[in-house]
């Protein structure tokens, strides 16, 4: 497991050693800061979006430093545009690296998606066709990121809403080959699995059975919204604006039974609830992690993947 290898790395630590393994965490929102600071060990860890801390100074860094003194922090990049045809932006990569060095995150992740093309930033996680050509490009980009930050990256599976005529392989085959070529870990977003599988008329269980679970170093859970497609059938939107849906909790339970207690994040990015509501979601994930922790200690994970 990625997190395990990292904790073996000896480095000069500014912050206390991370205890994120087997824990559930929450996305850090400045709005929740006062409530969080009133509690001790509110959740297992906090995740931040890297781009929100790429300013030079001010309240964002003051708040994150405060949190980092008490909690493990995981760093989740959004705008690297790893899945795009353009070369990676050197300045952005340098900013990303600076954050990794400054905050010593327990885990570092990015998306299988693109957001910038031809010098226009679209501020969305846009999809790519899965071909030999895009595979080679994405692998090169991940090599470049991992070289810059001198540690493994976790790559997240996307929520998708359409398909490309050009695709020649499945998303799971693509991701498995990326992990094999680059040695990167994977961030399994279980809500994305449910959203994409529903939108692509597939089965989330089939997706999970095809997914290289032994590379998973972190899990994401979030809520989704529902719309209709051209034919009036359900089209799910990865909206992060409500509680995690029941079928996603069920899938998560299956994944943890299989993978052991992988650090798990609750994402909630708009229509923010009061802190106790978000914390309750993280507590629910923690309960599932704890329930399966015994099996993990007994070696279930190794038995499955032996």
């Amino acid at each position: 497991m990625i997190g395990r290898n990292q904790s073996a790395v000896i480095s000069q630590r500014v912050f206390p050693a991370s205890r994120h393994e087997g824990r559930a965490g929450a996305g850090l929102k400045p709005e929740h800061l006062p409530a969080i600071l009133e509690q001790a060990n509110a959740v297992g860890f906090f995740e931040v979006h890297a781009e929100n801390y790429m300013g030079a100074g001010g309240p964002p860094h003051a708040a994150l430093t405060r949190i980092r003194n008490d909690y493990p922090v995981t760093l989740h990049g959004i705008c690297m545009s790893i899945g795009g045809p353009d070369a990676l932006d050197r300045d952005h990569l340098a900013r990303f690296r600076t954050l990794v060095e400054r905050y010593e995150p327990a885990l570092v992740s990015e998306h299988l998606a693109w957001s910038t093309h031809d010098n226009v930033f679209f501020n969305d996680l846009l999809p790519l066709p899965y071909t030999e050509r895009t595979l080679a490009r994405v692998a090169d980009h991940i090599d470049e990121v991992q070289e810059a930050i001198a540690r493994p990256l976790l790559l997240e599976n996307p929520s998708t809403y359409l398909q490309f005529e050009q695709s020649t392989m499945s998303e799971t085959d693509f991701i498995r080959e990326i992990a094999r070529r680059t040695g990167c870990g994977l961030l399994l977003d279980v809500n994305n699995v449910f959203v994409s599988s529903t939108n692509q008329h597939g089965s989330p269980m089939d997706y999970l059975m095809d997914f290289p679970l032994d590379h998973v170093g972190e899990i994401h859970l979030a809520g989704h919204a529902s719309r209709e497609d051209d034919e009036g059938e359900i089209l799910l939107i990865d909206s992060h604006d409500r509680p995690v849906a029941d079928p996603v909790w069920d899938l998560y339970d299956i994944v943890i039974r299989q993978c052991g207690p992988v650090p798990t994040l609750i994402e909630w990015d708009s229509e923010l609830p009061q802190w106790p509501v978000l914390k309750a979601e993280a507590d629910a994930a923690q309960a599932i992690l704890d329930r399966h922790a015994d099996n993990y200690l007994l070696g279930a994970r190794h038995a499955v993947h032996a």
Partner: peptide
Amino acid sequence: DFVVGPNGKGADTRF
């Protein structure tokens, strides 16, 4: 024109 829905479905809403 290269984006499609699953099983030959339309992709206007999807895009």
